[in-house]
Simulated assay, not measured.
Amino acid sequence: MISPEQAETFAAEWIAAWNSHDLARILSHYAEDFEFSSPFIVQIAGEPSGRLRGHAAVGAYWAAALQRIPDLRFERESVLRGMHSLVIFYRRFDGRRSAEWFEFGADGKVIRSAAQYAD
């Protein structure tokens, strides 16, 4: 199981990476071939499945999102932990609540992630 310390450290660094807008720092949390899903992938990347795989594809999507939303900031609310996964609840720059689920590989890098957003 992911320890409370591991969960807190990951959540703090993940939020800080996004708030820095440093794409390399954001991607450093993820395995090279990780899979990411988000409803915004359909709008921003034009991928109808809402899923992208790998640093190149997800990195291009996130770079476009960061460019479209220059004031993007996240504020951590809470973290839930599981065996090989955790969920971060946070508020986005617009005040809306969001959550992201992360599954970790043996090396501690994210292998799958999915974002959910409140309306």
Rank of each mutant, 00 (worst) to 15 (best):
A16P: 03
S78G: 10
G50W: 00
V87N: 08
E5D: 13
A11S: 12
Y30V: 04
P70D: 01
S3G: 04
Q43C: 04
W14Y: 06
A60S: 14
R112V: 15
V87W: 04
W14D: 03
P48S: 04
A106D: 15
M1E: 14
E103Y: 11
W62E: 10
Q116C: 13
G46R: 01
P70H: 01
Q6D: 15
Y117T: 14
P48V: 10
R91L: 10
R68E: 10
A106I: 14
S3F: 05
R92G: 15
A65L: 09
E5T: 12
W101A: 11
A45G: 05
S78H: 05
E35N: 14
I26Y: 00
A31H: 08
I44N: 03
F74A: 01
A106V: 10
T9F: 02
L86E: 03
E77Y: 06
E100N: 10
F36W: 11
L80S: 06
R25D: 00
E100V: 08
Q116Y: 07
G50V: 10
V79T: 12
G95F: 01
Y90C: 04
V58Q: 07
V87K: 05
D71E: 08
S3H: 07
P39R: 02
A63V: 07
V58P: 01
P4A: 02
G50E: 09
G82Q: 04
P39M: 04
A16F: 00
V58R: 04
E8P: 06
F74V: 03
A16Q: 05
A45S: 15
V87D: 01
A64N: 11
A12M: 07
G108Q: 03
T9P: 06
F36D: 05
W18E: 03
I69R: 03
A7T: 13
R73M: 03
A11I: 12
F10C: 03
G46D: 11
L80N: 01
Q43A: 12
I26V: 13
L86Y: 00
S28K: 06
E8Q: 13
F40H: 08
A115I: 06
P39Q: 12
G82M: 01
S20R: 02
A56E: 15
Q67K: 07
G54K: 07
H21M: 06
A106C: 08
R91F: 13
R91Y: 13
L72T: 06
L27V: 09
E32F: 12
M1C: 07
A7N: 11
R81K: 08
S20K: 00
L86M: 07
I26A: 05
I44Q: 07
I88T: 05
S85M: 14
E75S: 11
R92A: 11
F102R: 05
D107A: 07
